Amino acid sequence: MDSGDEPVPLDRLSDRFFKYLFAREEHKDLLIAFLNEVLMDLDPDGSARRIEDVAYGDRESSPLYRDAKLPRFDVVARAEDGRVFHIEVQVAKDPYFLERNLYYAAMTYSLQLRKGEGYHTLSPVIFVGLLDFEVFPSAAQNEDYHSLHRILDVRDHRWAMRGMEFHFLELPKLRRRSAGPRTGLDRLLSYLGNAGGEQVMQELAKVDSRVERMMQLESLFMRDPDLLRDYLKDLRDRLDYENSFKWARTDGLTEGLAKGRAEGEAKGRAEGEAKGRAEGRMAGMEETAAAMLREKIDILLVSKVTGLSLDRLKALQARTEY
């Protein structure tokens, strides 16, 4: 970039930048800090569930069956106690987002065991979704942006089946909050979701060293020509992908309207032709009936032959009499 060029605005939720922050061994402390903030945010026992270290895993799990749908994640990490974390950033709203991540978590859970291993060796799978849309819409102004989902007993809410849990972090709800960031998770997500603008980011960096570090890494990211080129390429591809759907919808609508008009015209022509044929047949039948009536053939017999009602024949008879 030339020094006179405008700085490229960074989407902190982009796939490239998010993985740069959280999926690199040299930045592993940021991932651990983020996961611990998530674990402690809603769980009274969260401090007891803190993690000290993680090992990065394969982001594309092998399918259980040959034709099984292959799960993919932004970050996969296993804690020192065996817990498996799926971390995913989702910007575009997906109508089947919940079903997809339940499927992914269940597949990861089931693929842990090898032949001969006992079920007691299974480790919990914890999904963390950072979402730039609302998956659980709410009418409240200051609704909670973090929701935790587990398999609980419906009567006493006992949590006995601990194999999977799901954390959803809905950034639009965080941005709508009237109060400023309060918890560590608030501060980290405010940075990632750019909640409040750059001035707020500077203020957060003063009180949270992790935000300060992420901002420093952001500066390094933007000055690295290779990272920046890959980021811009991904951004271009994503915009092309989104535009292809937009134009496909527009073209589909235009095509649908044209098809609808053509079908309507064809249907109108067919209905008109059918109506014309029916009216022609009726006119011909009435002409036949009138000729029979002029020949003084009994009106009941004319009705049976032509199918015309007596009332209609009587009206026709009145018109044909001289």
Rank of each mutant, 00 (worst) to 15 (best):
residue 313 L to Q: 04
residue 33 A to Y: 09
residue 16 R to C: 11
residue 102 L to I: 12
residue 218 E to C: 03
residue 191 Y to R: 03
residue 38 V to F: 00
residue 272 G to I: 07
residue 80 E to H: 10
residue 96 Y to L: 13
residue 8 V to Q: 05
residue 72 R to F: 11
residue 116 G to V: 04
residue 67 D to N: 12
residue 107 M to V: 09
residue 204 L to M: 08
residue 310 L to Y: 06
residue 38 V to I: 12
residue 100 R to L: 12
residue 290 A to P: 07
residue 237 D to F: 04
residue 45 D to N: 15
residue 79 A to C: 01
residue 110 S to F: 08
residue 82 G to S: 01
residue 106 A to K: 10
residue 187 R to E: 10
residue 82 G to F: 01
residue 1 M to Y: 06
residue 250 T to P: 00
residue 229 R to D: 15
residue 321 E to G: 13
residue 103 Y to H: 12
residue 106 A to D: 11
residue 38 V to P: 00
residue 75 V to S: 06
residue 167 H to Q: 03
residue 192 L to G: 04
residue 235 L to K: 14
residue 205 A to C: 06
residue 224 D to C: 05
residue 229 R to A: 15
residue 62 S to H: 08
residue 60 E to A: 11
residue 196 G to N: 04
residue 89 V to C: 00
residue 263 E to W: 02
residue 26 E to I: 08
residue 175 R to W: 15
residue 158 R to K: 10
residue 239 L to C: 03
residue 4 G to Q: 15
residue 39 L to G: 00
residue 96 Y to W: 11
residue 108 T to I: 08
residue 152 L to V: 11
residue 46 G to W: 09
residue 94 D to T: 06
residue 21 L to T: 07
residue 260 G to F: 10
residue 120 H to D: 14
residue 263 E to G: 01
residue 28 K to E: 09
residue 56 Y to I: 10
residue 23 A to E: 07
residue 286 E to S: 09
residue 174 L to D: 04
residue 78 R to M: 12
residue 115 K to A: 13
residue 95 P to Q: 07
residue 93 K to Q: 12
residue 192 L to E: 06
residue 266 A to Q: 04
residue 45 D to A: 14
residue 52 E to W: 07
residue 234 D to K: 12
residue 190 S to T: 13
residue 215 M to S: 08
residue 12 R to Y: 06
residue 81 D to C: 02
residue 96 Y to P: 03
residue 31 L to R: 02
residue 109 Y to G: 04
residue 87 I to F: 07
residue 14 S to T: 08
residue 38 V to L: 00
residue 31 L to F: 05
residue 153 D to N: 11
residue 128 V to Y: 00
residue 25 E to P: 02
residue 60 E to Y: 10
residue 62 S to V: 15
residue 264 G to N: 01
residue 57 G to I: 08
residue 288 T to V: 15
residue 109 Y to I: 04
residue 133 F to P: 09
residue 235 L to S: 13
residue 321 E to Q: 15
residue 172 P to I: 08
residue 170 E to G: 00
residue 32 I to C: 03
residue 32 I to P: 01
